[in-house]
Amino acid sequence: MTETVRIPGEWHIGYQYTIGTFASAFFDGLRKGEIWGSLCEQNGEVAVPPKSFNEQAFVPTDKLVQVGLNGTIQAVTIVTAPFAGSPDVPYAVIYVKLDGATSSIANYMHGVDLGDGTTLPDALSIESPVHAVFSPEPEGRVTDFWFEPGVA
């Protein structure tokens, strides 16, 4: 019986994603230690990161607004399963509603002992206060900041 043969192959397509002026403003803000959102004047929603239109009202949102660096946890997960390219496990990813925002933004939670990842520390409870901490050398990427427990 002939053994099954595997033919090597590769699938690599490069992209240069256009992110638009609103998202560009968001990443520019990160370089300065600021977080920006977009205000929909029709329904009052402040989306972070900002979008040039409001998904709910389906109208343009032509106003950028700076939001606070303090916020509260809206959702949390502790990742104990390694994934290609991910940080060393365990690590925590949280959704945070920043002061002045109506939506949540995801990022890593640092400054909390996750132990073996099976016990949820009090600092990671829903509605716990957190604040954004910026890298000393921001590059205009979402990884320029992370969250730590408490109010700044």
Binding site: Y17, T18, I19, G20, A23, K51, S52, F53, F58, V59, P60
Partner: peptide, 17 residues
Amino acid sequence: IPGALDELIYSSTSQAL
């Protein structure tokens, strides 16, 4: 066409509405 992909789509769908 300048703009992000979701902005292109929104421009078209919102104008159709």
